[in-house]
Design a protein around this nucleic acid. Structure first.
Length: 564
RNA sequence: UGUCCUGUGGUGUAACCGGCAACACGUCUGAUUCUGGAUCAGAAGAGUCCAGGUUCGAGCCCUGGCAGGACAACCA
């Protein structure tokens, strides 16, 4: 991991993204004494997804690239949506991605006391007031783009009274929603965020960390920037939707005279055919469209992990998508490219027949079995070899045989010769069909001198087929996942509409898959490549009695064109 | 009808102090046959949102438009 980062840093040909440029300028000018400190600030109200992975790689990456540190800080200011189960899931995901926040695990709720003191300071300066308007009433005072808001009747409440009321708010003397603390900024600002934003609301709710200590909770704007300052964050990286909040972020820093963290925004990741909105993902879970946050079809890190994605492939992906400020939609094909590229190197090749048809070798002795050696991974010699049982009856893929083949069909057909992977060259002699005309047996003869690896075996044949020995084959269940949504941009649709694009065929279970016997106790194997079917992992529910495999990603779909 | 952000091949990201628009994915073509849908070789595809201006020279600087996005939660 560290080596990888160092290599990146030393790669002069790699252009700097705009954030790296900012950091380097700051370093050059000696800002903050050359210190770089970032943070990853998730709200524990959902699972992390591939979009968060981009942010994680960015903030941890920037820190390590410039000799800094990155904190993990849970933005837990809203007790009614947050939960410790999410905290645990988020921690697990960041570790899985390969990043380490060491002992710097913080919580915005750690700063509630400090934040309260800050609020008292703001009130004392006459820059905040306790407002007793209801949410509806506040809305009614809102102006328009070119009309200022009407001032709250409580806007000019005396400082002492504000201090008293705010203390009593904190002490629980008032019911939920009865009053708020608002900052006093500029009701005519063209930036809506500056029109007396709310700092605190009353919530008599149990918090997953502070319990019942507090009944007033800070809003995002009041908590986030100040938490950055408290931690001495030098570069506070966030997504574009917070751009209009930056003036407020800076206003608080100036008024409170605290550490000047700088907020820098970048464009969030969007993936085609994929939903990233946490709210919508939650809906998929709660309404039962998926089995949970870790459903293999979910874009969550938990889902991707269960599906067989590797952290390295996701890191490579975030590197490829880059960092910029323009809205973007990344083609899922790029993510799939990254996982194929990774798995191609590490996944052992295994024989599996999805749609089997029997192949009988007429001149092979009845009852004989031999063990043939085959390489586990042609891309990686250190992966070693294994034995495959071979016998008179085999299964091959039904579409690897054609009775009446087109010109460039290089697989098996009447009279043609092909090689059985790691075994012998065979020649098709005849076929047996049932009443419906369906082929039930293919009869072939084999060339005993064409054993894989022998001198005679140098003879060229047109095609190579994968196979499994019928008496030795294991039954397995293979899950092929299609995309969850049929629309390229389901996230672009507002509100409920995204559900119209749910793909009813997103999960297909195929029984009757035949796999080679070496997979009986394959649970320890993380990744496999089933010949021509794609990359798979072993489902956590799999047992030796019931083998279940998830397809991580299919192989690149050019088979039809190659037709060989 | 406001403020802010952003406009570069199909997608994404580059292009130093203005100097022949590059890389990756995707697409296509060819080679290759013990599977590797890999690999190798090659091709097509943008003249940088538009219109002016400055300049020997503009994706980059200036002016004016246009388009897309964000912002009007007691969410973050």
């Amino acid at each position: 991991m560290t080596d990888e980062k160092d290599a990146l840093k030393n790669d002069e040909s790699k252009p700097l993204n705009f954030i790296e440029q900012i950091v380097e300028e700051d370093l050059k000018s000696g800002k903050h004494g050359g210190r770089v400190q970032t943070r990853f600030p998730p709200e524990p109200n959902g699972y992390l997804h591939i979009g968060h992975a981009k942010a994680i790689c960015l903030v941890f990456g920037i820190a390590s690239e410039y000799g800094g540190k990155c904190n993990l800080r849970f933005d837990d200011t809203n007790p009614i949506t947050e939960d410790t189960s999410y905290v645990d899931a988020i921690r697990k995901d960041i570790k899985w991605m390969g990043f380490d926040w060491e002992d710097r695990e913080f919580y915005a709720s750690d700063y509630f006391d400090q934040l309260y003191e800050f609020a008292l300071k703001l009130i004392s300066k006459g820059k905040a007031y306790v407002c007793q308007l209801s949410a509806e009433e506040v809305n009614a005072t809102r102006g328009t783009d070119f009309e200022p808001d009407q001032p709250s009747p409580y806007r000019n409440r005396p400082i002492e009274e504000n201090l008293d009321l705010f203390r009593r708010m904190k002490n629980g003397e008032f019911p939920n929603d009865s009053m708020t603390l608002r900052s006093k900024i500029d009701l005519a600002s063209t930036n809506m965020q500056m029109r007396d934003p709310i700092l605190y609301r009353i919530r008599h709710a149990h918090h997953h960390r502070t319990g019942d200590k507090w009944c007033i909770y800070p809003m995002y704007d009041w908590a986030h920037g100040q938490s950055d300052s408290i931690e001495g964050i030098t570069h506070s990286l966030c997504t574009l939707e917070f751009v209009p909040h930056r003036p407020l972020y800076e206003w608080f820093i100036q008024e409170l005279e605290i550490f000047p963290s700088r907020q820098i925004e970048f464009a969030r990741l969007n993936l085609s055919y994929t939903i990233m909105s946490k709210r919508k993902l939650l809906q998929l879970v709660t309404e039962g469209h998926v089995s949970g946050w870790d459903d293999p079809r979910m874009p969550t890190l938990h889902g991707l992990r269960r599906r067989g994605y590797t952290p390295a492939s996701i890191r490579a992906f975030t590197e490829l998508v880059g960092i910029a400020k323009r809205e973007n939609v990344i083609d899922v094909a790029l993510l799939e490219f990254c996982i194929r590229e990774d798995l191609n190197k590490i996944a052992p090749r295994v024989m599996a027949v999805l749609n089997p048809v029997k192949l009988i070798i007429d001149n092979y002795p009845v009852g004989q079995t031999e063990e043939l050696e085959t390489v586990n991974n042609p891309e990686d010699e250190s992966a070693g070899k294994r034995k495959m049982p071979f016998s008179r009856e085999l299964y091959i893929e039904r579409d690897d045989f054609m009775e009446d083949p087109p010109k460039k069909y290089f697989r098996l057909s009447p009279g043609s010769e092909v090689r059985l992977k790691s075994a012998y060259i065979i020649k098709c002699e005849s076929v047996v069909k049932n009443f419906d005309g369906l082929i039930t047996e293919i009869h072939v003869t084999y060339d005993p001198s064409s054993h894989s690896g022998s001198a005679e075996a140098q003879r060229k044949v047109k095609g190579t087929l994968h196979w499994v020995s019928t008496p030795h084959a294991l039954d397995a269940e293979v899950r092929l996942y299609d995309r969850l949504f049929s629309d390229p941009d389901p996230d672009g649709h507002k509100e409920q509409n995204f559900k119209e694009f749910l793909n009813p065929d997103s999960l297909t279970v195929l029984a009757h898959c035949k796999v080679e016997p070496s997979l009986k106790y394959a649970n320890h194997l993380d990744h496999l490549q089933f010949t021509r079917l794609g990359y798979f992992n072993v489902d956590p529910d799999s047992t030796p009695e019931r083998l279940v495999f998830n397809r991580t990603v299919g192989l690149k779909d050019t088979w039809a064109k190659q037709n060989t």
